[in-house]
Nucleic acid binder design. Structure first.
Lengths: 125, 125
DNA sequence: GGCATTTTTGGCAATATATGCAAGGAATGA
DNA sequence: TCATTCCTTGCATATATTGCCAAAAATGCC
């Protein structure tokens, strides 16, 4: 049976993953990791949703400990708390590439036998 | 402005992160990556929730392309589709360590000045 | 003070997610 | 065939997430 420690560990890991698990937030983190700190209005322009929505995504990322903010006048700049976040996100690439390769393989095998992909997957069993 | 390609890319990344963004699913992926394939009932015993719930988590991870299943009799074993997933998850550790270090630093600085953590964070501005 | 700019917050509706229970397959063995 | 075991799916419910609008803070400038 799962220990309390394992439970806490899983929860901590999930909290980071949850913070990143949204297209807008992935985009924000990715952009900042490549081009440095950005303010809310810049991000709003790029992303094309309401400012309030972007602000909420940012404060969620801040609460998760992934971003910190710095105020200049009325402008608030958000930046990564740690380069390790960029490293972590780049690890996603391999996973996506592998997934893509698998999808292509399944599709190719189905075509080979003149089946639909669903038929092929069923036949695989 | 965000391009369609960027949008799709963010969506693809988020789909993997979303699949992992739950304590139970993090635990499952972690366990399998360390100790190999497991069947639904083993995981159910370890985790302590209903079988149907575990089964759903597993099929979600399968749909996300992170696990595949193999049937032996009435038993279904789930395993990682790719070692890169374990690598990716281990990248989380650095992020968590960094977050923890930051939290400790903030707490220590607050104690230093005999403030609450909230007061200290406000004073940081 | 009054005004403009930037950001955050409250409220609310729409949507998505998580869970257990109960019922329904699927494979095995008596 | 019947019972058993393992797993998945339908349904109902509870909770969480997302997004916009409008209103409120915060700051700087005149």
């Amino acid at each position: 049976m799962m220990t309390d420690q394992e439970r806490l560990r899983a929860q901590a890991r999930a909290s980071v993953l949850k913070a990143l698990a949204h297209p807008t937030r992935v985009y924000i983190v990715d952009l900042i990791s490549r081009t440095g700190a950005h303010c809310v209005c810049e991000l709003t322009d790029r992303i094309g949703v309401d400012t309030s929505t972007v602000s909420r995504h940012l404060s969620l990322l801040k609460n998760a400990g992934l971003l910190y903010d710095r105020k200049e006048g009325t402008t608030v700049y958000y930046d990564l708390t740690c380069d390790c976040i960029a490293d972590f996100m780049s690890g996603l690439e391999s996973v996506l590439r592998a997934r893509h390769a698998r999808e292509r393989a399944t599709f190719a095998a189905a075509v080979e036998h003149d089946e639909t992909v669903e038929e092929h997957q069923a036949a695989e069993q």
